[in-house]
Every structure is written in C-alpha cells, then in structure tokens.
Design a protein around this nucleic acid. Structure first.
Lengths: 341, 341
DNA sequence: TAAAAAAATGACAGCGCTGTCAATTAATAA
DNA sequence: TTATTAATTGACAGCGCTGTCATTTTTTTA
C-alpha cells in the first residue's frame, strides 16, 4: 500500500525521527544522511500523511481561505492561486465562504479555525478590512495574510499583499482625460470597501493633476453590482435635471460598468460615441459586453499565490518575511472608451 | 483547551469507546447511555478531531470536489452546495480544479485521492462523463457521486444526480414555437458534453412535436464560450448566403447567448424585435445582458447539496441509497424572446 | 431458577507522525 | 592524545481517535 515513514526509515537505514527531520527540512542532519533519506523518499514515492502530521505535531498543515465576495470570477482566481502555492508545499486548503454582515461571523470563523486546527488564513476584502475581526483571528495563534487595497499596509496586524487601486484608478482616469474628457463621472462601489475609497482617490488625483475642476454632482454612491451601475448611469444621464451630463463614466468595477452600459442602451445613448464607460477588474465579462470594456487588469491568481506563499513561509517559521508585495492593475484599452467630441 | 473524547468520557462516566460509538451513531448503545453522552458532548461543546479520526479509522472524513469547468458561477454554486452538506455532517471538503484534456489527469487525481485519503468524490461534467476516468477512481475504493445530464443514469458505476436538460430544452424551444417561431436555430456547446447532446435532443423533439421541419443548416457546432456565440450567430445571420435566416436562436448556454447578442449588435439586428435569442443556465450574467436573457434555470446549489448528501450517506454506509434525483431546469422568460413577426 | 444467548460496554493496541530527551558520533580545544 | 563541546541520531511516548476482542450486563430460553 502507501509507504509510511517506517518504510522510508527502513529503506534508508535510519530512524524514523531522522526521516521526519529530512522531510521537515530541519537543520542538523548530515548532508550524506539527508541524501540517503531523500533517495528512499523518492524511490518509495513517499508522501507524509497529513492527518498524522496534524495530529502529532504542534503545527498543522492546513490553511484556509475565508471570503465573502459575490464575485465568482474573483473567488475562483483566488482559490486557484492559493491552491497552486499550497500544493507545491504540501499544505491542504480549506475554503470557507461566509457572510461579512453576519453578526456572529467572528465566532463562526473562530470555531472553524479551532475545529480544523488551521495554521494560517488568507483574507480578502471585505473581511481583510475588518480590523476587529482580523484581530480576534490573530489572537487565536493562527498566521494571517491579508490582501488589501492600497499602497502600504494600514497596520501591523499581519503581512499584506497590497493592490494599488489608487494608482490604477489614476491611470485609467488619465486615459479618459487624454481622450479629451473633462466631465468624468464616478460610480462608486460599496462605500465601506477600501477599494472604492482608493479608486475614488485615484480618480480625484487624476482630475487634479490635469487641473480639471471636481464636480461632486458627477459622483454617484453605489455598490459593487450591476443594478448599481444601471441606476447610477440613469441618474447621471437623465435629461430632466439641468445638471451637467458627463461625457465619460468611471465605474468602480466591471459589473457596475456593465450596468451603466445597460442603462445607456435603455436611454439610447451610444457607447463610446456619446459616452465613454470604463470598468475595473478585467473580469471575463468585461470582454463580453457590447462594446467590450476598457478596464484595469488585476492579476488575481498571481496575487493570491503570492499571498499564499507569504502565509506558508510564516507558518513554517522560515522567516518572518515582512516583504509586502504591491501590485498595480494595468490599463486595458478596449472599445468602450473613445475620444471626446 | 479544546475538549477531547477523554473529557467527554470522564464527564459522562463512560469509556471513550462508548463516546466514540455515540458520535458515530453506532447501534448497540443503550438509549440512556446515549443521552448521557450526548449531554456531555453538548456541555463541553465537543467536536471530534478530524485528523485523529482520519488517522485511526478505516474510513476518512474528507471528500473532494474535482472539476474542470471554466464557468466560475457554476463552480461557486457547486462548492457552496457541497460545503453546506459537508458542514452539517462534519466532513471536510477539498477542492481540486483540473484540466480534463490533460493526459495524466487520471494519474493526477488518483494520486491526490490516495495522498489525502479521500472517502468520496463529487464529479461534474465534463469529468463525470468520462467513464474510464470514473472507473479508475471507483477502483480506488472511494465512493463517487456524479452530476450528469439526462433523465436516467447511463451506467451503474455510481449514484448520479441527473439534470434533465432534454426536457428543459424542449420546454424552452416550445416557448419559441409558441411565440410563432418556425426557423429556430441551435448553437451547440462542446459536442462531447452530454448537456449539449441532451439539449439538442430536446430541441429536436420540440420541433417534431409541433411538426416543424428540421433544417440542419440552422444547427451550428460550437463550444460553451462567448466567442462561439459570436461566430455562430454571425454565420446564421449572414446575408451573403441564400440560406434561410432564423427568427430565433436557441443557444446552448447563457455565455453563447451573450455572444449571439453581441453578434446581433454588430450586425445591427435588434433583439428581440428581429431575432429572439434564448440561453440556458440562468447564470448571473443572463440578467446583465441587453436585453436580459430568456433562459432555463438550474438550481445548481441545490443539486450540489443533493449530490453531497448522497455521497455522504454512501460514505457512512448508512444505506446504499440508489435514489437518483432528477432536476428539470425551469423556463425563465425575460426580454430576449418575443413574438415572431 | 439456572443456563444460554444476545446486547452493551470497556481495555488496549495502534494509525503515522512529531516532540522530548537521552545516546552516540564528530569536531574542537586543551 | 585526551577532554570538552557541539552536532547528529535514535528511543520512546503520545497526539485523539477507531478497531478488535474480551468482559460485563441484560434478556431470553429451558
């Protein structure tokens, strides 16, 4: 059947403890011994039993990805990236979707972490942005890595992988400005999400750096949803009011942009001729709208893998890597943005 | 710290073995004893340690969901449903995305199953439709439950949860016929997928039952992708040829339908006035296209939970439930289908 | 009522590994 | 060279549970 540590020990002519040392990459094993053991491991195609390790050892080999995010594409990308890192290092991944608005979320997750003896957690927005929640988890003696929006970590609670939405938003707004747009509207995502705040900052910054006067009537509060895009765009483009109608809309994500596109269609406004609309995220359906969306690409899979590697090195106590990686989403120009007439 | 089986045994005044019997729902425990133990379990908020159970026992408490499917919405729904069933029964879920086209997929998955000591597997199309692959897994002494397209299981390999695409496709085609359409085109998904075949059968059956002559020029081979919808619709609606142009298109899923919508837009064909387009799946973006798609709704989360329950009862050897549940996706009428003029 | 059969319970080993600590070996200092 | 220290290795217990089998208790039968 499956080889155990005993088989390897016998084959290599050492004690099981030495095998254990080798597979755990501990120091104080002579090079020669290490090689002997490694050889036996390879020959027998030995893979340590996770349950046994979790049971016997102080540390566990399970990490979890906790998330609350209605965006399926995002979650799938994240899972993929994390999984890829976990596999390479012999860890197992548990997934735990949950509801950030649930009052008992802390209790629920704390229980889950205890129950499964989890060694580390990866958190994405909005969970990663709930300091109290994060704190209760860290108190549990699990390592945590957060993926967050911004350029520097907001606190010292845990290592973070940062996504610089501000800069990306500035770039994408600048793209609109370069096309001659001045009346650029902004449809926000959930107000509480850092990503919304950061994208808004980038938007403002771009306007400022081009000396375009900010018009608060062009800013619509919303949430990360299609419907929010529909109603936001309707409001912005309605002719009833005597407000200024924008010539371009910066939507906080692709879903909102798709909604805006939908509203434009309803109102018989042609895109991009009469109105430019840009999204954010480069989710698959930004390629499936009419017209295809100009957007900003986040390499989510890579971000996730990065975060997972950070977490695993923490868990394995290799070093307290304080390295904080930062990603800046890249502008992708498609067909929903054009020269302002 | 966390309560163990010893604590419970002490509290209840029985041996740990008896506690074990109670938590495993074994027979031959007196009612009185069972209650005593249950009380202690509740008081101590005891939850058995999964690693220990997996290590000590013959059976394991881990199941896996293996999938290859580019449709993020589908996967997320499945995961959610499976997870919900697993949680209720104290099982852990491992997820394993993979590539069905990879030659070594069997080896890869077999390894994974052995390595993690997995008790059961849930398979969705296209993996569930690869008999050789399924067989090698079953030989491994893991329980398998497949989610498949059709009304009856194609073989005896494993219990199945069936999704009756044929009937649903017939209903949705009938919907088009009821609207007065006669020249109804069909854009297929991946030819190898049972769902494509079943939906095609339903389409044919509906035509037949209304005595509409089948025109093979109106059937386009494709795959489950947006691009396939674009090129399919282009081909169907091109004016160059002297073929009959359809007045309605049955797209094998929503993504294809979205592509068809896109193509219609390109060709300046207005939907649904000049052409009705229907999708299949009721994925979120069927609500985010212009116009919103008429489609067939699959309750994926529920299907998944059903499959997971079937699997877990197998694994726990409660009974060899041969119950095969069958779901028929329901017609959802939105704005992309209209009376034929 | 005693004997036999059936049901309920418990003692104990052991799953595959890691942690602790003692024993051995190699490296260094005296 | 020998004593001392450091590096390497191994023996063994035990993580929390389940499987096996023996023991005790209850029920049934004679």
């Amino acid at each position: 059947m499956k080889a155990t540590i005993n088989d390897v020990a016998k084959q290599a002519g050492v004690s099981i403890k030495t095998v254990s040392r080798v597979i755990n990459n501990e120091t104080s094993v002579r090079q020669l011994t290490r090689e002997k053991v490694q050889l036996a491991v390879d020959e027998l195609n030995y893979q340590p039993n996770l349950s046994a390790r979790n049971l016997a050892g102080a540390k566990s080999f399970s990490v979890a990805y906790i998330y609350d995010n209605p965006n399926a594409y995002y979650i799938i990308d994240m899972q993929g990236g994390i999984l890829s890192a976990c596999k390479k290092q012999g860890f197992e991944l548990l997934i735990h979707p949950c509801d950030a608005k649930n009052e008992n979320i802390t209790e629920e997750v704390v229980n889950m972490v205890k129950q499964a003896r989890i060694a580390g957690l990866i958190l994405t927005p909005p969970l990663s942005e709930m300091p109290e929640f994060v704190k209760s988890l860290i108190d549990l003696d699990v390592k945590v890595v957060r993926i967050m929006s911004g350029d520097v970590a907001p606190d010292e609670l845990s290592p973070c992988v940062m996504v610089n939405d501000r800069e990306a938003a500035q770039i994408i707004t600048q793209h609109l400005i370069d096309l001659g747009h001045k009346d650029i509207a902004f449809i926000a995502g959930d107000a509480k999400h850092m990503s919304t705040i950061e994208r808004y900052k980038g938007y403002r910054r771009a306007l400022k750096s081009s000396d375009i006067e900010f018009n608060k009537n062009l800013v619509i509060e919303g949430e990360y949803s299609f419907d929010s895009g529909v109603s936001g765009a309707k409001q912005l483009m309605s002719t009833e009011s005597n407000k200024i109608r924008p010539t371009a809309i910066f939507s906080c994500n692709d879903e909102i942009a798709a909604g805006a596109l939908f509203a434009a269609r309803l109102m018989d406004i042609s895109i991009p001729e009469q109105l430019s609309i840009v999204g954010f995220e480069n989710s698959p359906f930004s390629r499936q709208t009419w017209p295809k969306l100009t957007t900003a690409d986040q390499p989510n899979g890579q971000i996730a893998e990065d975060a997972a590697n950070l977490l695993l090195s923490q868990v394995r106590k290799q070093k307290n890597q304080v390295t904080i990686s930062q990603y800046v989403p890249k502008l992708i120009i498609r067909d929903s943005s054009a020269q302002c007439k």
